[in-house]
Amino acid sequence: MSGINIGILAVQGDVAENVSATRMAMDDLGVEGIVSEVKNPEQIADLDGLIIPGGESTVIGTLSLVNGSLKKIKEKIASGMPVLGTCAGMILLSKKIKDRVVGEMEQPLLDYLDIQIERNTFGRQKESFEADISLEKIGIPKFRGVFIRAPSVIDTGKNVEVLSKIDEKIVAVKQGNIIGTSFHPELTEDLSIHKYFVNLVQKKN
């Protein structure tokens, strides 16, 4: 097989939007490879990069635990596979979380990104918003952030690089080859973040 193999974790959430954003990003960059929906450990084993989409983090986590996908993703991350997590995806990648209303919570996590998350940090759906933000450190000066019942990062470890903030709240981070965003790049027409991720996978490969 020639080219890179990027999978979108297809348990629950906005999978199709990430498939098409990644496909278009690869075509624009002229990068060869495949983009596929992955659900089980065998499919994850073959990947060069993984995107964990938006959705409900409790649902994606619990169901990925059930069939062994969570364990396989942990192994792949340990071996250096790049992962992009958007919204629920970033929550799953983190080490520690709490909910703005409910408080401390226990849910299955990948336990890798050295950050603490506050879920639903901006409030409920009525408070969901769009705003232009900036990710200068990865060469994206302006990006339309779509924040839907979004989480934020309230604490970061020393290996974590902060990529973007809105009103003093951290909304995008990077640790090694792992990127997490509070917002949904897959819901916008701007492919910059998906392109950045494709390049990361390409370089690693």
Binding site: A10, V11, Q12, G13, D14, V15, A16, E17, G54, G55, E56, V59, C87, A88, Q125, S128, F129, E130, V146, I148, R149, H184, L187
Partner: peptide
């Protein structure tokens, strides 16, 4: 934002 919220529920 409204339709995006519904998209997050997909397959659920």
């Amino acid at each position: 934002l409204k339709r995006g919220f519904a998209h997050m529920l997909k397959n659920g």
